[in-house]
Amino acid sequence: MDGRMSFDPVEDSVEDFPADLVFLAMGFTGPERNELIDGLGVELDQRGNVKRNEEFRTTVEDVFVCGDMGRGQSLIVWAIAEGRSCAAAVDRLFSGSTQLHSPVTPTSVPLR
């Protein structure tokens, strides 16, 4: 069901809550599939994010991806880290090498 978890209901626990306004804040499933993704023809990975190699390159030549669009819903600190690392990868494409800081790879994960 669209990535949602399912839980066993507790018996006799049905309760109605009055509401005039409801906000759904259940997270994000990935980038929007629209003219940009279709037009470029970039491939998506199994989770629906834009697929990339270890150099932040998509499946289309000279097109890179960074941040939530490649990693999926994450944090600002990861977005900045990816932006920096992706810039280093672009600079490497142009110059053959780079002095730019590259703190993470597309597959880096939090300590766990």
Partner: peptide
């Protein structure tokens, strides 16, 4: 070169 950074803006629905 093009850098895509369009976020993960597709909201999960209920």
């Amino acid at each position: 070169a093009v850098v895509l950074a369009c976020g993960a803006t597709q909201s999960r629905d209920l």
